[in-house]
């Protein structure tokens, strides 16, 4: 498993380094703007960083689906399926590697944002204002929402399983179209449509289940729990189809 994950990381390393490089550039733009007191540059830096934080996570997800597609549809499929590993392990390594990457990327961008915001306020000489700003930010949420630690944890759990569920749906969409069309045209379109349909199904069920719940923390948990159940079902289905189809 460790080895499978190592090579999944290796396959996505180039794109991850590119995102990291772009982030470093944006950070430099931000820092130079801050140091030279050029507000426009600082603004551009902040905009770029925000874009990369969201876009980067998206790209990592898309890249992992593209790689799965290649691992199923080209001769490179032998590299995985000749090894003494089941489809469950092969797919599991992909999901885990992706989940860990997303977790680390999220933590990284969160830490970077915290650092940059601190720098921004410190530079303005208004470090004290930072705390006011943060307090205002928290208070700007609905008064009923108290972002205590358990709720924050529930939110993070929700975000993570939602993401893993999204990746699993994309995987399932891809292997369904691969198994059905086997390298024929519209393969990509069919997998995308299957993905959209699966995502709609998940959110439909989530909507139904959370309709009558009032507490935000409970909503996060129920919503995430459903995403998790779907992720597991889709993972098993994907691995089952892979096992039947195996390589090209």
């Amino acid at each position: 498993m460790k080895n499978l994950m190592k090579y999944e990381l290796r396959k996505t390393l180039a794109i991850k380094l590119m995102i990291l490089g772009a982030t470093a550039l944006a950070e430099i733009v931000f820092l130079i703007g801050l140091w030279a007191d050029r507000n426009r540059m600082t603004g551009i830096g902040v905009g770029l960083l925000a874009m990369l934080a969201f876009g980067g996570v998206m790209i990592i997800g898309i890249a992992s689906v593209v790689i799965l597609h290649r691992d199923m549809n080209t001769k490179q499929s032998y590299m995985l399926f000749m090894t003494p590993n089941s489809s469950y392990r092969i797919l599991g390594a992909k999901v885990l590697e992706n989940g860990i990457s997303i977790l680390l990327a999220g933590a990284f961008y969160f830490a970077l944002a915290a650092l940059d915001i601190t720098l921004l306020f410190a530079h303005e000489g208004r470090l004290a204002d930072l705390w006011n700003w943060l307090r205002d930010l928290l208070q700007s949420f609905d008064a009923r929402i108290t972002m205590d630690t358990p709720t924050l944890l529930a939110l993070n759990f929700n975000l993570l399983v939602t993401w893993i569920g999204t990746v699993c749906a994309a995987y399932l969409g891809d292997v369904i179209s691969t198994a059905l069309l086997n390298g024929k045209r519209y393969n990509g379109l069919v997998s995308f449509l299957a993905f959209i349909a699966l995502m709609w199904l998940v959110s439909f069920v989530q909507g139904k289940a959370t309709a009558g719940i009032s507490g935000i923390r409970t909503v996060f948990l129920v919503d995430g729990g459903i995403a998790l159940v779907f992720a597991v079902i889709m993972y098993v289905l994907t691995a089952q189809i892979m096992e039947r189809k195996l390589s090209v």
Partner: peptide, 17 residues
């Protein structure tokens, strides 16, 4: 899965990353 440990197979097409 088990037999793949003991059977070395070389395909005719190239397959390395």
């Amino acid at each position: 899965i088990e037999s793949r440990k003991h059977i070395a197979y070389m395909s005719t097409e190239p397959y390395f990353y």
